[in-house]
Design a protein around this nucleic acid. Structure first.
Lengths: 232, 232, 232, 232
DNA sequence: GATGAATGAGTTTTCATTCAT
DNA sequence: GATGAATGAAAACTCATTCAT
């Protein structure tokens, strides 16, 4: 999912022959290494030494490019968040037509392996615990929070208008918070029970929630069938 | 919520007024201080120096009673988990009659201020990020996981049997995982948006989920009303 | 060889029924445990905690009976030295008649398993390294030094007088220092090469040394034979 | 004897006068300081704080260059051993012609002030006591063991063949072990009785041992004379 | 006399940051 | 821009000693 350090152009840029000094590349290497270290070791083990070893970069680089380790972690949180939204948008562009389909696409994407996987879930939980003492982390560690809230809320409003023609803001708000909370909980469940967790089950549970609130937009499930499978 | 060190009976013993040498008291002081430090500083700032300063004990005590800082944090995770269950059980004893009421009581308790508050939510997230590198934390940081899963599942099974008379294990399983995921998500929401979070809204959202899955057991809500308010 | 703690009267004293408080026994337990710890762990690992655990005695006992850990180690060094001489004397009483036989008996005893074994050799080397900073250790860690020097020296003087009738103090002194140095070196060899070390070889080497200096008293060895075997 | 930090060329580099950042120099400073601390304080007092104070470097340096205190002590043991052999070889190159002369040169060197002096003898005994718990110390603390054994053994074989023409491996082996044990014992004697110890006496004693085993190669001493004086 | 909880100075180790090269 | 040796504050841990019980 994420661009691994090895895939980054190691010097075959067509224009520059010896880009020995490529600050942007170094910064990206450091951020990738930080995310790797966060995922594998947790926040308390993600030390400068481990990060530079992973990045294959010199010790002074963190301070040179980011000013401090905290700033590096903040930058990593920012990139992590941006990548989430980029991938989410990519999948929504492919899939969505109509408000109900949009909501389902969001759920499907959030529960799919591109967004919810061992690494991203581990990073997410590692950052969570440090959000209170690092403003940048706090700002960017709300993963599905900022942009998605409005998109989902608007979709429910459209769904509701189509079917009922009346304003029911409480229902719409409850649906929005509920979907986000369910997805949040699913990420934790995925982390705590990686073996037993099942993406299809998770999707179906969210779908049941949606069907309970907007029965006409999200028709009840019969038997094992489900509207559309979550991607592998 | 938690018994602060000062509240511990300083003269319970009828004969001796100041039991200066009380290992159990010292251990508890350290665990309380650890939970405080975890809640206020996060895992990476919960240092031995901060913990002993809070507990008002000497440096060597952690090693004396727990063997290491990690073991102390493990013991703190254990007590944190036990207190969650103790309080949950206390509230269930007061409230529950019938399977649907039991589920609602669990939800109400989990979202109530005794269990879900700034401190416990902060501790919970701090421990989450370290669960992978401390077996004891891992074991006890599943807060509402171990005992509740069966209780809720059994309750849904009873609810379903009453109303439908047929075995529908998938629905029961989905309902169980869904409720737990929703509660999980609500704790995170409470942490991320302490200002805007509203316990009644959270309860109502879970109730809507339940009503969608078992409409007869959890009757639909009309307007703002709800079966019973979440305690302040 | 050494009286193990278990062999010490565990309470079957005919006079006292409950000798719960037996300071002498506690002191001995501590000294034994100290020697054990020294032998197994070396000086830097022979901590108070390990010693009291081995002795099965309370922490405060060391200070109570010896005043400090250093004093305990000094007492252990003293007992270690005394036991060496006691055993040496016991073996000399059994064996010796005539000055040459006395010297050979000393050598045989020093190289025998009662005196030179893994434990005593390990203790000896552990104490050696600390002799400079503990007066008591210094005083008593010279194992075969104090009393033996005169005994051996006098024996050589007698041997020499018998055979040559002239005073040759340099030869006598050289023989004395040489035998002691050889024995010293054999203890180290035993420690460094416990597998390949052979008591009979060691004895024969010392015998060759003696034969070289006093050929008539210590007749040359022919083939593999040797005057008398070192005890197993 | 050992190159003291101050003697290290502080301006060897033709261009730069103060190479502040010189890892090799830092490592050597630390090792020297460790050997000094070992000699003066013994193993249990050779703390990181004392070592860095002697070396005049920062606390973190030990970890930076050696990884741990134990590794530093191991490196010090290695250098100590290497210096012994280097000096021994230097003296053998100067002196030796013929097998008997080689053996005497080894003995003379081992007992001479370059190799056997207060510092080296103190270090040797300090390391001995810790050899069992540090593999590197164990490997390198056999000072005169590894290379010398073969050299001496081969020399005796040559001596014996010259004079007797017969294979007498037991004698050769006994002579080898005996010389090494004697030297070993002399080092301990030098440590325990630094005042009364006399290098010439020590040499003469070893010479007597050699003369007793190979009379033709090591001719008897008459009076106080000896083939060649041990260097002061 | 005996206990063992408690202490805290001191130990090794860690690690983000600095800065000469 | 880049490096990595160097730093030292602060971390966790050790352990002989103390002293209330």
């Amino acid at each position: 999912m994420y661009i691994s350090p090895k895939e980054i152009d190691p010097g075959k840029a067509p224009k520059k022959r010896l880009p020995e000094r490529d600050p942007e590349r170094s910064k990206l290497l450091l951020i990738e290494a930080t995310l790797d270290a966060l995922a594998e070791n947790g926040i308390s083990e993600a030390t400068v030494s481990k990060i530079i070893a992973r990045a294959g970069v010199s010790r002074g680089m963190i301070h040179l490019h980011f000013g401090s380790k905290d700033a590096l972690i903040g930058a990593a949180a920012k990139l992590f968040s941006e990548r989430y939204y980029d991938e989410m948008e990519r999948q929504l562009t492919d899939a969505a037509n109509g408000p109900a389909a949009t909501v389902l696409a969001v759920v499907r994407a959030d529960l799919g392996p591109q967004l919810m996987n061992k690494k991203s879930v581990a990073i997410w939980h590692a950052l969570r615990g440090e959000a209170h003492r690092n403003a940048t982390i706090g700002k960017y560690s709300n993963t599905r929070d900022r942009k998605l809230r409005k998109l989902i809320s608007d979709s429910f409003a459209a769904v509701d208008t189509i079917h009922k023609g009346a304003d029911r803001s409480e229902l719409i708000n409850d649906a929005t918070l509920g979907v986000l909370a369910l997805l949040e909980g699913m990420w934790t469940d995925f982390m705590v029970h990686p073996r037993s967790f099942n993406r299809d089950d998770a999707f179906r549970i969210v779908y049941r929630f949606l069907g309970g609130l907007f029965p006409e937009a999200f028709k009840p499930i019969h038997g094992d069938c489900q509207p559309r499978q979550v991607p592998k």
